[in-house]
């Protein structure tokens, strides 16, 4: 039996957490298991209970509010947990139920594509629209961009073929700072969830994209750990995720 483990803390966010867990459970055909801690429970104890539940063999996904029971609680969980976790930010409260469209920010590395491939497949199977996002920066910008309209089409087709082989998936391209664009594009596209592959490294200077997205997004964020050893994490991950 597979389970989605949802953490409730007796706070206002509990309703949205349970709603998100239920929707995710439907998509991946899993039951929802609620792990409740009383308000005022020390963060360490709450984290231990949730991580214990997530370590159970049947647990495949965690769901928690990004600011409960403390503003940095989520960091403790996601950096210690090898399983995907959905963070529900405060701004997601009152979000329409269901997931019709998800945003998949992809840096173009095989690792990030592999990290979100399973989730993308499950969303696609459930009929959810997939919008991939790639942000050009100094390390990822193509060398050549001939006629813009044709180059865009050719580049996008190949990017999707390598990174997101799902029927109907489309690609949005931006230039600049990844984290800022993720939140902006998610809002413009009316995405109901953001799916991010990440390196599980929260050291200073790392995971800027994840931090920025968690702090700024108005929709739940699914964080999927990259299956790469620390030494193999590329420059994009080190700088942006």
């Amino acid at each position: 039996m597979t389970e989605v483990v949802a953490l409730t803390t007796g706070a206002d966010a509990d309703g949205q957490v349970m709603q998100t867990a239920a929707v995710a459970g439907e998509i991946i055909c899993a039951d929802v298991r609620r792990v409740s801690v009383a308000q005022g429970t020390p963060a360490g104890q709450a984290a231990a209970r949730l991580l214990r539940a997530l370590r159970e063999p049947g647990a495949v996904l965690g769901v928690l509010a990004s600011e409960q029971p403390s503003r940095t609680f989520w960091q403790r969980i996601v950096s210690s947990c090898a399983k995907p976790v959905i963070l529900v930010p405060p701004a997601a409260r009152g979000q329409r139920p269901g997931i019709r469209r998800v945003l998949l920010p992809l840096d173009g590395t095989p690792e990030s594509a592999a990290a979100v491939a399973e989730a993308a497949g499950q969303f696609a199977t459930a009929g959810v629209d997939l919008v991939a996002l790639h942000v050009f920066n100094e390390t990822t910008v193509p060398m050549f961009w001939d006629q813009p309209a044709h180059a865009h089409r050719a580049w996008a087709e190949e990017f999707l073929a390598r990174n997101c082989v799902r029927p109907g998936a489309r690609l949005e391209l931006r230039t600049g700072v990844t984290g800022e664009h993720i939140v902006d594009v998610a809002a413009r596209e009316r995405a109901d969830m953001i799916v991010l592959g990440w390196s599980r490294q929260l050291d200073p200077g790392r995971a800027r994209t994840v931090r920025h997205t968690v702090l700024s997004a108005a929709v739940p964020i699914l964080l999927v750990p990259l299956a790469v050893p620390e030494k193999d994490i590329g420059p994009f991950d080190a700088v942006n995720t």
Partner: peptide, 16 residues
């Protein structure tokens, strides 16, 4: 190297 090494990620769409 533009096509032989697919320098710009679009050789799949044809030769330059």
């Amino acid at each position: 190297a533009i096509d032989l090494s697919d320098l710009t990620g679009t050789t799949a769409a044809g030769l330059h």
